[in-house]
Computed example of a mutant assay.
Amino acid sequence: MLTDMKKDLNAKLTRGTQRTLDAFFDAMTTLLAEKSFADISVNELCERAGYPRATFYNYFEDRDDLLTYCWIALSRQTNSADLTAVDSSRRVDVALDSMADLLESNNALLHAVLAHNPPEGPLFASLHRFIEHNARRLMLTCVDRNRFDLPADLIADHYANTVLLVLDWAYLRGQTLTRAQLHDYTHALLRGVE
């Protein structure tokens, strides 16, 4: 997903580039808290960010590309643990906590965005794809390849989909769960392969 963007976010960014990315990130998140993603135009984004359209298109293909950048920027705010260093019995919990931390640390923004963008709409479809991509990559490190006869990719998909289901239920559908409950629900749903 990082390779689809015009800017290589894995390369060292200049201060000017980071300032421009931050301005467009702020513009997008501010507008998302005010209106539907479908109603946000590139012109509005440029006006809010304080940059001309040419600058926008130097950095992004379109609004969806900027939205992907926003998900990347938000995900970098969390403490993403090296799961290979974590005991295999705790890897799913650590990965789940990392993703839950991201949602909880952006709770006010999430609620403001939910007010204008329904969970079944295009904005949350984009978020779901981003989280699913990262969860699948993260969960691949959770799979104990010696315990299962199934392909590791299939098990990682199952883990990622289960974690996403629990996170969606807790954070997007408004169920109030403690961390212990998040862990318990996830493990109860995963028992078919654990």
Rank of each mutant, 00 (worst) to 15 (best):
M1A: 06
L2Y: 15
D4E: 11
K7Q: 14
K7N: 11
D8M: 01
L9S: 02
A11R: 14
A11T: 13
G16W: 07
T17G: 04
L21P: 01
D22T: 12
F25R: 00
E34P: 04
E34C: 08
A38W: 00
D39Y: 00
D39E: 14
V42S: 04
E44T: 09
L45K: 07
L45N: 10
E47M: 11
A49M: 07
A49G: 11
Y51I: 09
P52Q: 09
P52D: 12
T55L: 11
N58H: 12
E61A: 13
L66P: 02
W71N: 07
L74T: 08
Q77E: 15
S80N: 11
L83S: 06
A85S: 14
V86L: 08
D87R: 14
R90W: 08
R90K: 15
R91W: 09
R91K: 08
D93C: 02
V94A: 04
A95K: 03
D97K: 13
D101F: 00
D101R: 05
L102P: 00
L103M: 09
E104S: 13
S105M: 14
N107A: 12
N107Q: 13
L109I: 08
L109M: 02
L110N: 10
H111I: 04
H111Q: 15
E120P: 01
G121N: 02
F124H: 05
H128M: 11
F130C: 02
I131R: 09
E132S: 15
E132V: 05
H133P: 07
N134P: 01
R136E: 11
L138N: 08
L138S: 14
T141Y: 05
V143M: 05
D144W: 02
R145L: 02
R147E: 14
A156L: 04
D157F: 04
D157Q: 12
Y159H: 11
A160W: 03
V166W: 01
D168K: 13
D168H: 13
Y171V: 03
L172H: 00
L172R: 06
G174R: 00
G174W: 04
Q175S: 03
T176P: 05
T178R: 05
T178D: 06
T178V: 04
L182Q: 01
L182K: 07
L182M: 05
T186D: 00
H187I: 00
L189Y: 08
L190W: 05
L190G: 01
